[in-house]
Structure formats: structure tokens, C-alpha cells
Nucleic acid binder design. Structure first.
Length: 421
RNA sequence: GCCGGGGUGGGGUAGCGGCAUCCUGUGGGACUGUGGAUCCCUAGACCCGGGUUCAACUCCCGGUCCCGGCCCCA
């Protein structure tokens, strides 16, 4: 009986990994360009960490279990909570701002569908320690830059601020502790229910109408005109800074809010419309989680990209290069040349030339075919006749041209030819 | 958790109550060491479990997995 892969998980072929590595390389490069440093946390965490952050409901959507010591353990469903836990545990003495990123797998017990798996990968970026608009703006700059480098020209940013609606609710007389429920309804676009809820909480008909109208405002900075209060001023400033920094895709959507209490300010999402139902590639915002995990209060802002969805989007836009082949394949025409084959491979590898030699003892035709399938740039053919004269045949696999070269000059010749390309 | 559509060699397919087709890929061989070609050979499959039937890959039921959508999305 064949053993099946666990539902919602994937194996990655060499070709898959070549593509995923390309994206990882790009993410690491852009992170470095912006001064973020990579960290890694365990796949396993105490389930309590996520329950504390997101409520007991998440237990239903997590892989959680009791270990042999009776501890409640979970496979991490996201990266923000572990990173902040790490910070609270060990990193509080590092100079602020602490700019960190992480590319890792996460797990959620949900129904798999397009762009959605039970094991999935996230690229998470966090700035810990700043409460300034500059921090939020930098995050948007990085996100915008990343989308551009990925060739995602259709992306839609939806940027909001939880303080805008909360401010209006304060003014309308709704107590703070009743507001989260309303934000949840707005987040889910259940505006009728939101209206009913506001009225039941004593908000006037007129105020409720204003608030719902505000929730539906979308567009450029113009939508902030006429809004008063710190939140809209702050948001305006973030957008202005990000645009000065070169961001060009930004747009506002004041209906983007979060019902969870630790969100403190900016909140945003990014969609890649070409992906269909599961089109959101990024979610982010500023939050105060450290004190929730038992640390000193610290303001943070961060975002998480869905790695797998970025790959999907890049596939749709044709951004991924084909897998790279090797540079050299060496074959011995008869076993008598095997030792020389291995010796030459060693020299080439030492010189940084990616090299394979024949491991199968196959005929020349089969070996050349294999070399071709491996994308080899050159083949080195070790034949009795040439070897007797101290030479070998170097075959250019792109055009089939061959030339005899001295055994001693193989590495130099290859270095020269490969450098020209 | 719910609703569609699907599971035939590794990949792609044909068939559809009785013989499972082809392509490709894999391994081997031939072709005097120019043959990444061509030719030949070998291996390799009806998702699982029940039911109907003389007979099930085919029809029915259940499960499972995949694809897509809903819910959810920290």
C-alpha cells in the first residue's frame, strides 16, 4: 500500500524548488536592501501563544496536540506571534527599531483550495519599537517595491486605519469595549448588521449613516478630506511619506479594519486580482502584542505575504526563469578513462564550475542525452584516441561544435568560455 | 463543515459491463567513438472498501485524495 502525502501538503520537485528559491532569493535581497535581518523560530509553539493572540476559536483551525509531557503544543499558524514572543523572551536589549524578517512554513487545519494549503509558507516582516508614521510608510514602501520587482502590476493595495472608525464611534458615544464587535462586522462587510448593532448600542441614525459611509470610502488620499482626528491625519502622513519614497500602487479603503483589540493603527491588505478567489497576497498593520505576551509595551508594525500565492502570481505573469542547468558534464568513452573523468571533475568543481560526471557507465549517446536533459552547457568527452595524445573533446551542447583541447587546459578553457556568456 | 467537478502506468491519454489504447518519460540494447538522432526490448496503471451482476475499470453506495467555490482567514 502506498503511503499518501498528508492532505493539504505538497512535495516540491527540483523544478518547483528552483522557482521557490528564486522567490526566496528575491525576498532576502529586498529585505537586506531595506535593512531587515532574518530570524527563525520553531515550528512548534505552546498553543497558548496563539490562543492568547487570537482567542480560543483558533484551536479549531490549528494543528494542536498534547506532547508526552502533557503540554498543549501547536504547529504555528502564522509568524507574527512567534516573532513577538521571541522578542519578548530574548531580544528586548537589541537597539530599536528592530527590523526582522522570516520566511517559513505555517500550518492551518482548513480546507485546501486554490492558493491555500494546510502547510503553507509566509514571508513576514516586522518593525518592533517604532510608533512613527515613518515605520508604517517604510513597510508600504517595501511592499510596493516587492510587488514591482515581482512584476505584479495589477496589485491592489487597500489601506485603512482602525482609529478612524473608532474615533467616529467614540464621538457617537459607543464605549470602547463595544467597538470591536462592530469592527468585526465591518471587516466582514456585513454592513446591515453593523448598522443594526450601532443602533442597538445607542448610536444615532445620522451617526450610524456617517460611519457606514466612511467605511465604504475607497480611493486615493482625497477620501480622507473632510475627516477629522488624529487617525486620518496619521494615515494621510503615512501615505504622503510612502509616495515620497516612490510607492506608486497605494490606495485607501477605509473599510479595512480589524476586530482584534491589539490592532492599534494602520491596517492594510494587498490583492493580486489574477489569483481569483484566494487573491489576497499580503496582510499587515500596526499592533501592540508584546504586553499581551507578558513583555513591556512596545509598538510594532508588520506584514505577512503568502509565499505560495506570490509564486502563483509570478507563474501567471511569467516571471519565473527556467531551472538552471549544470555547466559541465564529463563522460568516459570506456571505463579506462574513469579515473581521469573523476580527476577532471574535481578540478572543475574546485574552480567553481558546476560539474557532473557519468555515474552509469552508459554509452556516449545515452550520456549525451542525459547531459542534455540536465541542461549541461558543455560536455567533456574522454576518448581513448584523444587521451593518448594528451587531449580531450570539449563539446558545446548548444550548437554541437567540438574542439580538442589539452587535458591540462580544461579548466582554463572552460573558465574563459563560461565567463564570456 | 458545506457545494460542484474529477481520480486509468512516473506524466499525459483512449476505452466504458467481458480483450486496457497510444504518446511521453524511465531502465536496457543496437548503430565501429559523433548517434543529445533513429530503431528494438523490458518494466510500469484502472484511488480504497462494500453492493449489483455469470462477469465491474465501467453501474450503485460509502470513504479518501485532487481541482474549483462557499464558510473562515490570526
Amino acid at each position: 500500500m502506498m503511503i499518501q502525502r498528508v492532505r493539504g501538503t505538497r512535495d516540491f520537485t527540483p523544478q518547483d524548488m528552483s522557482r521557490r528559491r528564486q522567490l526566496e532569493d528575491l525576498l532576502r535581497r529586498i529585505s537586506r536592501d531595506y535593512g531587515y535581518r532574518e530570524i527563525q523560530t520553531p515550528v512548534l509553539e505552546n498553543a497558548e501563544l496563539f490562543v492568547t493572540k487570537s482567542g480560543p476559536g483558533v484551536l479549531n483551525e490549528m494543528y494542536s496536540f498534547e506532547d508526552k509531557g502533557g503540554r498543549a503544543i501547536a504547529l504555528r499558524p502564522e509568524l507574527t506571534a512567534p516573532i513577538i514572543r521571541f522578542y519578548v523572551n530574548d531580544l528586548t536589549n537589541l537597539p530599536m527599531p528592530l527590523k526582522l524578517f522570516c520566511i517559513s512554513s505555517c500550518f492551518r487545519y482548513e480546507e485546501p483550495q486554490s492558493g491555500r494549503y494546510r502547510e503553507f509558507y509566509q514571508y513576514d516582516v516586522e518593525i518592533i519599537g517604532s510608533e512613527k508614521a515613518e515605520a508604517d510608510a517604510e513597510l508600504l514602501l517595501l511592499a510596493d517595491d516587492l510587488c514591482r520587482r515581482l512584476g505584479l502590476n495589477e496589485v491592489e493595495f487597500r489601506i485603512g486605519h482602525v482609529g478612524i472608525i473608532r474615533g467616529l464611534l467614540d464621538a457617537a458615544g459607543m464605549p470602547q469595549d463595544r467597538q470591536s464587535e462592530l469592527l468585526r462586522l465591518v471587516d466582514k462587510k456585513k454592513l446591515d448588521e453593523a448598522r443594526a448593532y450601532m443602533l442597538s448600542e445607542g448610536v444615532s441614525e445620522a451617526d450610524a449613516g456617517d460611519i457606514l459611509a466612511t467605511c465604504q470610502k475607497k480611493g486615493d488620499r482625497e477620501v480622507l478630506k473632510g475627516l477629522k482626528g488624529e487617525a486620518s491625519e496619521y494615515l494621510e502622513r503615512v501615505i504622503r511619506l510612502a509616495e515620497k519614497g516612490g510607492a506608486s500602487n497605494l490606495s485607501l479603503d477605509l473599510g479595512v479594519v480589524r476586530g482584534l483589540d491589539y490592532y492599534t493603527g494602520l491596517v492594510f491588505e494587498i490583492d493580486a486580482p489574477e489569483l481569483g478567489a484566494e487573491k489576497q497576497i499580503c496582510g499587515g498593520g500596526s499592533y501592540a502584542l508584546a504586553e499581551l505576551f507578558g513583555g513591556q509595551p512596545v509598538q510594532s508594525t508588520g506584514m505577512a505575504f503568502g509565499f505560495d500565492r506570490l509564486i502563483l502570481a509570478m507563474e501567471k505573469t511569467g516571471q519565473l526563469a527556467p531551472e538552471e542547468g549544470i555547466e559541465l558534464f564529463i563522460l568516459a568513452v570506456t571505463p579506462a578513462q574513469s579515473e581521469e573523468m573523476v580527476r577532471l571533475a574535481g578540478g572543475a568543481r574546485k574552480a567553481g564550475i558546476s560539474t557532473e560526471f557519468d555515474l552509469m557507465g552508459r554509452s556516449m549517446s545515452k550520456s549525451l542525452k542525459y547531459a542534455s536533459s540536465r541542461g549541461a552547457r558543455y560536455a567533456l568527452i574522454l576518448g581513448e584516441r584523444e587521451m593518448a595524445a594528451g587531449k580531450v573533446l570539449l563539446r558545446d551542447m548548444d550548437n554541437g561544435e567540438q574542439s580538442e583541447i589539452g587535458i591540462g587546459s580544461v579548466v582554463d578553457e572552460l573558465r574563459q568560455r563560461l565567463a564570456v556568456r
